[in-house]
Design a protein around this nucleic acid. Sequence first.
DNA 1: ACGGGAGTTGTTGTA
DNA 2: GTACAACAACTCCCG
Length: 511
Amino acid sequence: MTEIVWFKRDLRLADHAPLWHAAQSKRPLVALYIFEPDLWRAADISPRHYACLYAALADLARSLHERGQRLVTRIGDAVSVLERLTQTLPGFTLHSHQETGNGWTYARDREVARWARRRGIIWREYQNGAVVRRLASRDVWDRRWRAVMDQPVFPTPLLPPPLPLASEPLPAPQGFDATALSPGRRAAIARLRIFLSAAGEGYARGISSPLTAAESGSRLSVPLSLGALSIREVVQATRRRAGEVAALPADRRGGWPLALRAFTARLHWHCHFIQKLESEPRIEYENLHPAYDGLRGNAPGDAAKYAAWAAGRTGFPMIDAAMRSLITTGWINFRMRAMLVSFASAHLWLDWREPARHLARLFADYEPGIHYPQVQMQSGTTGINTVRIYNPIKQGFDQDPEGRFIRMFIPEIAHLPASLIHTPWLAPNPTPAYPSPPAYPSPPAYPSPPAYPSPIVDEAEARKAAAARLYDLRKSGEHRRIANAIVEKHGSRKRPKRRGQKPQARGDLFA
DNA sequence: ACGGGAGTTGTTGTA
DNA sequence: GTACAACAACTCCCG
């Protein structure tokens, strides 16, 4: 009898319930990763995800090796790979975390479950963080989150020696350097230390502007999405740091109390959002609130608008800089993500599904359980959140007053002064802005980049039209009736602000 | 952690 | 010193 620990998006050895329990049996143990070619062809998955995964797997393999074990990699769809393993390992128990992934992994898990039942193989699935499978009610969810995070982490168990099983080598990733995103566990732990000891002090202040967010944010989203760190490990490390800070004299605490509070709140929302997709997987494909069905996405110019948005060529500098930055680095801060979605869904009045898949492919830290609830929230299709339409010009003035971020990613307008860089269409000579052609006739050394486009919509007009349509829809009693049911199922149970407001579940950003 | 307008309060400059 | 306009800063509310 053998224990197989199937690693998915939980690429670590510590705080790993499946590995811990499998190791307690003292039976032979196989640490398995299955490379599933079909998954990597899905519309929301891209080579940059693979580059990150590959780095985190390499780290995992190294850790297993140091503990006298080995990572076994196999290629194929999960059921065939497992079926083949039954020939070498006649009896085994399969251990893995419950995965709240995309529709593809959900379907795959159901096939694996069916296969395991048919073959009489036991598949033990362990809860992932505070995300509860078959959650009956949101009412007790917060308390459960706390209980999970209060539990000590599972230590890395002692592992038995590996079985002589061959690995199939995985393809090398291409075209994306994941190093700066610290995908693997060692890099992630190093980043966590720096964040909690130094970089994170400006967290609350720094995460709004794309100029400062990369340094003052935790930069842990990629390793968290791959499970190279568990949320509980990060929560507990943050609590330990909060204890240290509290022990300092009040005038030596600096920005830390605020920073750590804000960070902890986000760690809490991490599971909170994933729970929404776990409870209602259809929101990857369908509007949470049906009143928005068919509302957008059937106008003649949509394809061109989408293409301009997706390439960072809308003519709105802050939108385009954010998109191009994301394309280049695989990461952008939360506010810019919200702005990008809001612009596609409100100003351009596009259905959120294609934009969501585009962003999923670009976000190296793509976490389906966070992505789809967030996209729907910023698109207004949850029906329970206040409509939030970002003005990209205002965001530019607020978050990048001097235009430094814009200049980094939009060379076409880098020459404009700060007073014009957020509204290049107001510049005296909006189109060319390129050095006049050289006097000699030979072909130019550098292909001259295309001119920066004019804005593809009128900002104020588009925003007002979108707001009017959304608010109009929300007026109906039918809309409200359904929204109340949605709040009951998904809404945060945090108390509303004091001052004797109605004690109902909040329908705001955090719901 | 939406934006913008209206209304309110606070500050400054001027006669 | 007082009166008051002009304007900034802030809160509240609604789409």
